[in-house]
């Protein structure tokens, strides 16, 4: 049932990746993603794949859990592969009627799929090793330079924190209301789409009511504690850049430089 859903996919731990500063992690992830797009050669990918494997090993997240993050996008990956396999002109490798598979298609398809998988795996490494609260903190810090252009960085981060905070609560609540209505004989699982949608009404009405009530109470509680936005606000757990972060940044820049030299030599 619903209780089996985990929101965000934070996997608690204390690995090297867990200890990195979330701001550094986000920036390095962006750098890596840029590298994946810029250096589109097999040698460069060899290095990036090796790095990804190393990061996966030292993340402390079980391989099975990590690979599970690929599952939602599995069909897109497979479809992309097939399209490239069939749609690339070149030397024929295998022919069956109108279907013409080329060597170029095979290599191109594999390459694009690798790229997709790397992007997914790397970004899930970030969400697996960073708690949602830390992530929003980092977003706020990274977005704050844009405040002078009118971007409400603190407000956005606060909204996200509150939303994240209430996701488990609302899931629990939905679960409870669903069970309550189920014990009154509602069947959510059979019937046409229309009957199933109608069966959602007894859940949505109570859910919305309680969500609005909660929002009201939270706003009151925040005001009662003198919340007035982000100006001059300090944090209980301030983000701090440590030596580990400097080492990580240095290594990643070294790798980017190395890849650039490699591309230039080609």
């Amino acid at each position: 049932m619903l209780s089996d859903i985990t929101i965000g996919q934070y996997y608690p731990g204390n690995s090297l990746l867990h200890r990195l500063d979330p701001r550094v992690k986000i920036l390095l992830l962006l750098l890596l993603m840029a590298e994946i797009f810029i250096f589109a050669s097999w040698t460069a990918y060899g290095f990036i794949i090796a790095l990804t494997c190393a990061l996966m090993c030292c993340s402390g997240v079980p391989l099975k859990v990590l690979l599970r993050s690929l599952r939602p996008l599995l069909w897109i990956i497979v479809l992309t592969f097939i399209i490239h396999l069939l749609g690339t002109p070149g030397e024929t490798a295998y022919q069956l009627g109108v279907i013409n598979i080329t060597w170029e298609g095979l290599s191109r398809g594999t390459f694009i799929c690798l790229r997709l998988m790397l992007l997914i795996l790397l970004s899930s490494l970030l969400t697996f090793t960073t708690s949602p609260v830390k992530l929003t903190d980092a977003m706020e810090a990274l977005l704050s330079p844009f405040r002078r252009f009118g971007l409400p960085a603190h407000e956005l981060a606060m909204m996200m924190t509150i939303a994240l905070r209430f996701v488990p609560t609302l899931i629990e609540e939905t679960d409870r209301i669903m069970k309550a209505q189920q014990s009154r004989g509602v069947d959510f699982t059979t019937g046409s789409i229309f009957t199933r949608l109608k069966a959602m009404v007894p859940i949505l009405v109570p859910l919305f009511l309680s969500a609005f009530r909660r929002a009201d109470e939270l706003a009151l509680a925040m005001e009662a504690r003198c919340y007035r936005g982000g100006v001059g606000r300090t944090q209980m757990k301030a983000l701090a850049v440590t030596r580990l972060d400097y080492i990580a940044v240095f290594l990643m820049i070294a790798m980017a430089a190395g890849l650039s030299v490699l591309a230039w030599l080609d």
């Binding site: 409870r176 209301i177 069970k179 309550a180 209505q181 014990s183 009405v205 109570p206 009511l209 309680s210």
Partner: peptide, 12 residues
């Protein structure tokens, strides 16, 4: 029959 905690929250 099951009456949950705060059953009034299921009224709709």
């Amino acid at each position: 029959g099951l009456v949950f905690q705060y059953p009034e929250q299921q009224l709709f």
